[in-house]
Design a protein around this nucleic acid. Structure first.
Lengths: 136, 136
DNA sequence: GAAAACCCTATTAAATTAGTAGGGTAATAA
DNA sequence: TTATTACCCTACTAATTTAATAGGGTTTTC
């Protein structure tokens, strides 16, 4: 399941991407328009800022804004930051690899074999989608 | 993340599929060979029996066995029974559909758009893999 | 008729999620 | 410079899910 954090983060990014200009947008506006708890959204936007997706401006007229243009923001990166591993099991993860302690031989494991394909197909989708692609 | 239930269920199915014959295999044997808690595995196998994947035989010489041949057991069906929805959000689920209460228009939703593709690509993988395909 | 093996219910510890509460700090415009 | 706006940060918590564990049946089959 996709966490609400990821869902809200994606929606916020999409909202920012569909702004006519690149002026800062207030948290309260995004929260209201996208039906997201403001405080929760605050923490999500903060993490998107710390990971280099968003910039922020304080004071009156401040808010959050995209640091890059939508077509340069890959879903792969966004998903990894918001949701974490793309793989469904750590033993097939590229960025969050961990071996299974119950599995003597990874390459003989049928779960491994299946999940490797699932990871690759998901990765394919994420790689082929930028923020631009998913806004209407 | 894949739940342990699904992981263990898949491993158990694969173990049964790689038996030389179709004789019942005891829970204790599967649990030991695959490093799974026996009691936990018991409940998993039970649900696989109730959903028509496995048959069981009681008494001495009893155990669990596949009801179909491995090449006729689709990963799509197995995943739906063990893990539940294949989609990462209910609003793109074929078998477990639910609308989002925060989303005024599903078709304008960027999360929806992305997750639809992810679902289709995962489904593609599951449809192209039977139990036979994932055993070595 | 006893052992083997499946079947069933209830409980629980740990982890994660999705927030809530509440306050602090910095920057901007007037 | 001062009031306001808006970001920033910490801590806590209720609810849910997961991954078992415990313990006791019941049914077959040899």
């Amino acid at each position: 399941m996709l966490s609400k954090k990821t869902k809200y983060g994606l929606k916020a990014l999409a909202y920012l991407a569909s702004q006519p200009d690149r002026k800062p947008v207030q948290i309260s506006e995004i929260a209201e328009k996208q039906n997201i708890s403001q405080k929760f959204l605050e923490s999500i936007l903060l993490s998107l800022r710390k990971t280099g997706f968003l910039g922020s401006k304080k004071g009156k007229g401040g808010g959050y804004y995209l640091l890059k243009i939508p077509e340069e923001i890959s879903m792969t990166d966004v998903m990894r930051v918001l949701e974490g591993p793309i793989s469904m099991v750590p033993c097939v993860s590229l960025n969050f690899y961990e071996s299974c302690d119950d599995c003597p031989d990874e390459h003989a494991c049928s779960v491994h074999k299946l999940m490797l394909q699932v990871r690759d197909s998901a990765l394919d989708v994420y790689k082929n989608n930028t923020l631009k692609d998913i806004i209407s």
